[in-house]
Design a protein around this nucleic acid. Structure first.
Lengths: 145, 145
DNA sequence: GCATAAAGTTAAGCCTGCTTAACTAAAAAG
DNA sequence: CTTTTTAGTTAAGCAGGCTTAACTTTATGC
């Protein structure tokens, strides 16, 4: 029964990792002048790719009205693009602009920084173990959804 | 130069992991009726242990006035306790109540769930690799701060 | 084709977080 | 002992997110 040991290991890591990431994320969003909901929508588009207003609403468990209003602010900031879906003219296709992508990249850099510092402190062997493990996890996580 | 490979591996994992965790965290906070700032303060107390109003403000980059107001709501909800610091009677010592700890535990369970599903899909050998790697990372992360 | 459903938008109103400013009380400095 | 600094609270007011409700426009079902 290695299962329990695994859960312990991954939960410890999740805890410490989440806490730092959240903080870093929050402060970065604040520094850009964006609210968390706005920034979250940007990240959603980055991960899920183009989608419609309804998808945003569903994803954050808010009404389409709210999603529409949030999206509108991002459009006006020039961070995302909103165009008519040619297949269904009621729907909109949302996508990141170059400006939006650039901002996300900056945010990720900042959040990656402390992890990069971690890397510097590992031995070559430790690093190999970590690389292998994260590949396994990432692979499985992608398969899951 | 394995460094680049390492950063690649950890960033891929961070991306996918952060995205799911954030979403899960956000929805859980919402389901409890707490706002994100309120929930974040709870998590802060969970991680950093007891602290004062000023620490909260500093940590989230808000004024002490704002921190005081947020804390007050959590006190009234019975999730945290606010008592005078015996060493400095101006200061307050904030700590989680049993109710607060219980709520955090529930939230973590939910956020751990999908990772536990991942565990089930790994081979014994993969699991060993992952356990080892996460221990390395967690250890180093704790040392860092 | 006509009724109904679906995707978004807009506006009104509420709630919350946050800031500034004015305040209390305790500690530190001189 | 008086002055200044520090920790926190309170109130007023603004900004933002979110909801409901009414609406427009396009697609779908019979």
């Amino acid at each position: 029964m290695k299962s329990l040991e695994f859960e312990q290991a991954i939960r410890s890591w999740m805890d410490i990792f989440m806490h730092r990431s959240m903080r870093s994320w929050h402060l970065f969003a604040k520094s850009t002048g964006l609210s968390m909901p706005q920034f979250s929508i940007l990240m959603q588009l980055h991960h899920r790719g183009d989608c419609g207003i309804g998808d945003i609403g569903e994803s954050f468990d808010i009404t389409n009205a709210a999603a529409s209003q949030l999206v509108d602010k991002l459009v006006q900031s020039g961070l995302i693009q909103r165009e008519e879906d040619p297949n269904d003219r009621r729907a909109k296709r949302l996508s990141l602009t170059d400006k939006g992508r650039k901002l996300i990249r900056q945010g990720m850099e900042e959040r990656h920084r402390w992890v990069d510092r971690l890397a510097a402190e590992l031995t070559a062997q430790e690093r190999d173990t970590v690389i292998e493990a994260l590949r396994i996890l990432t692979e499985r996580a992608k398969q899951e959804n």
